[in-house]
Amino acid sequence: MAAPRRGLRSIDGVDDSRRQPRTRRGGRPVGQVLGIPIFVNGSMILLAVLVTYVYGNYVRAELDLRDPFGYVVGFGFVLCLLGSVLLHELGHALTARRFGIGVRGITLELLGGWTEMDRDAPTPRVDALVSLAGPAVSLVLGGVATAATLALPDRTAAGQIAFQLAASNILVAIFNVLPGLPLDGGRALRAGLWWLIKDRDRATEAAGWAGRVLAFGTGMVAFWLYRLGTLTLLGMLFVLLVVFTLWQGAGQSIRLARMTRRFPLVKLRELARPLLTVPAGTPLGEAQRRRSQDPRPNVVLAVSDSAGNLTALVDPIAAERVPVDRRPWVAVDSVSRSRDAVPALPLDLSGEQVVRALQAHPAAQYVVTSGEDVVGVLRVGDVAQVLEPRRPTKQRK
Rank of each mutant, 00 (worst) to 15 (best):
2 A>H: 06
5 R>W: 02
9 R>D: 02
13 G>L: 03
16 D>M: 10
18 R>E: 04
18 R>W: 00
20 Q>N: 00
22 R>C: 00
27 G>C: 01
27 G>P: 01
31 G>V: 06
32 Q>H: 11
37 P>L: 04
43 S>A: 03
47 L>I: 02
47 L>S: 01
48 A>E: 06
50 L>Q: 00
50 L>S: 03
51 V>S: 10
56 G>F: 06
59 V>L: 09
63 L>Y: 13
71 Y>A: 10
74 G>M: 08
75 F>L: 15
77 F>G: 00
83 G>N: 04
84 S>N: 04
84 S>H: 03
95 T>A: 11
97 R>C: 00
103 V>W: 10
108 L>C: 02
108 L>K: 09
111 L>A: 07
113 G>D: 11
114 W>C: 14
117 M>Q: 11
117 M>S: 02
118 D>E: 13
124 P>F: 11
130 V>E: 14
132 L>W: 03
135 P>E: 12
136 A>I: 00
137 V>W: 04
138 S>I: 02
139 L>Y: 01
141 L>A: 08
142 G>W: 02
143 G>D: 12
144 V>Q: 06
144 V>C: 09
145 A>P: 08
146 T>V: 03
150 L>Y: 11
151 A>S: 06
154 D>G: 10
160 Q>H: 02
162 A>D: 07
163 F>H: 02
163 F>E: 06
164 Q>W: 11
165 L>D: 09
167 A>S: 07
170 I>K: 04
172 V>W: 05
172 V>P: 09
177 V>L: 13
177 V>R: 13
180 G>W: 05
186 G>V: 14
188 A>Y: 01
189 L>Y: 00
189 L>W: 01
191 A>Y: 08
193 L>H: 13
193 L>A: 12
194 W>E: 05
196 L>D: 09
201 D>M: 14
204 T>Q: 12
210 A>E: 14
216 F>G: 08
218 T>F: 11
222 A>F: 01
223 F>W: 10
225 L>S: 04
228 L>M: 15
229 G>R: 15
229 G>L: 12
236 M>G: 10
238 F>C: 08
238 F>L: 15
240 L>P: 00
246 L>Y: 04
256 L>N: 15
256 L>C: 07
261 R>F: 08
265 L>N: 03
275 L>I: 14
276 L>T: 08
276 L>F: 02
280 A>Q: 09
282 T>N: 11
287 A>P: 02
291 R>A: 15
292 S>K: 03
294 D>C: 05
302 A>F: 02
302 A>C: 08
303 V>S: 01
303 V>D: 00
306 S>R: 06
307 A>L: 09
307 A>S: 12
308 G>L: 02
313 L>N: 03
322 V>N: 04
323 P>Y: 13
329 W>K: 01
330 V>E: 13
331 A>S: 10
333 D>S: 06
342 V>C: 09
345 L>V: 01
348 D>T: 13
350 S>W: 14
351 G>E: 03
352 E>L: 10
354 V>I: 04
358 L>N: 06
359 Q>W: 03
361 H>N: 14
362 P>G: 10
369 T>G: 06
376 G>M: 05
376 G>V: 12
379 R>L: 15
379 R>K: 08
381 G>M: 07
383 V>M: 07
386 V>W: 00
387 L>E: 13
388 E>Q: 15
388 E>C: 05
390 R>A: 14
391 R>P: 00
393 T>K: 07
395 Q>H: 10
396 R>E: 13
397 K>Y: 12
397 K>G: 14
